[in-house]
Write a protein that binds this DNA or RNA. Sequence first.
DNA 1: CAACGACAAATTATCGATAATTTATCGCTT
DNA 2: AAGCGATAAATTATCGATAATTTGTCGTTG
Lengths: 243, 243
Amino acid sequence: MAKVIKIKIGVRELGQLLAKSESLTERAYRSLRHDIMSGILEPDTPLRVEHLKKQLGVGSSPIREALSRLAAEGLVVSELNRGFRVPVVTYDDLRDIVAQRKLIECNTLREAILNSDEQWEAEVIAAYHRMTKVEERGLAEGLNPWEEWEERHREFHEALMSGAGSTWASKMLRQLYDQGDRYRRIYRSDAFIVPCIQNDHKLILDAVLARDVDAALAAMGNHVERLNEGADKSTGPHLKPDN
Amino acid sequence: MAKVIKIKIGVRELGQLLAKSESLTERAYRSLRHDIMSGILEPDTPLRVEHLKKQLGVGSSPIREALSRLAAEGLVVSELNRGFRVPVVTYDDLRDIVAQRKLIECNTLREAILNSDEQWEAEVIAAYHRMTKVEERGLAEGLNPWEEWEERHREFHEALMSGAGSTWASKMLRQLYDQGDRYRRIYRSDAFIVPCIQNDHKLILDAVLARDVDAALAAMGNHVERLNEGADKSTGPHLKPDN
DNA sequence: CAACGACAAATTATCGATAATTTATCGCTT
DNA sequence: AAGCGATAAATTATCGATAATTTGTCGTTG
């Protein structure tokens, strides 16, 4: 006869476990964020509440709240009584973003290398492995699993940063990373150079495992500065070059 | 006979000039921000929409939008279906804030010293002068014009940073400055040491005018690290020590 | 004929009410 | 008496409607 296991659980705890569905505000936030970051919504596009209401099928409050949050992050701009729009992009702004990210990310990496434990090393290796697996799969099958690769790439950087244990550095880097990513997709939606980036990652990983601070920072610095490529030539404001 | 000057202006332009009154959202945002930063709203206080509606005399939408913006900035925390509250404070968090601010502010100051023009020097001197005038007035009249001094102090730092021309550095420093200020007022609401801070500012100014990067960064580093004083002793989370 | 003012259309900002969810209260069971 | 379930109270999240503001159109005027 099979054993019967009784699990006692109150309605309170049950509710806690189940109803973890996200709010409509959160959904609108994510959707807008994705469309802005991916370039689907081009720079300077007005984000009209009425339109978004129909498109996302929610009321105005969640839309406005989501837009307010994005505005505070710098992923949309707002003007009084003139609503919200997607921020315009300039090469100068990109260079600024890259410079600040380089400063913070290199500093955080140094802290991580100097202060972290073996647990951190393991997580970095794991994240690296997950990322390269997607690269291999992409090359083998011929199709571009960019959406997934970009997620793994972000996680690799986040794993590296986590070693320093700095909440604020992580928070700021997340913003700068997102902004840089938007610029990259707008300026270089077509070309996407994998080989040299793959090499960057290998250099960073090796230096980290060897606890070689100087080499790690140099590699990370080069890697981050790649975002500027394509923006070095000109200086003016610029919308999508082609496409 | 007095001259009569006629100024022609259309209704459009007139409207633009006059109706620059801020939105209710903006007003709620500022009010909440001030109360959180100044410590009037203590850490972990729940921010209930119903209550704030009555207190500020506006509907729920502006309140929620203001809270959303503050949440994105890290000046309030929000949890799904559990509303908003004032973030708790810890010594670890303060140390993190100070470390990040030191990194960015010193780097930005270097850029400013190396790349700026005389116009910048003039603005820095002017801001310094406005700040010290308030200090003198405070000492002479015996009363503490802190509210105004803190405004001038912030403007002095902003003037120093403006020389680098980095939008993102300024944006991030504003956040870190605000956060640090909140901590300072919570942890050290009573004692406020002016003399050594005055000396810090003098050192920074002199080094900047002498274009002495090393001295300027050293002085700025010390100045920023003063925020940690009082938090060095203990490590655990902590609410108002006295008062 | 460029600029103006008035009216109309579109869009944003705000409010008050309703639905959904969490927290508190209280007999009842084991 | 400790914990459970059910109901009541409090609070949050969302919606649809209204007020305020900006933008567009078009005769008229200097």
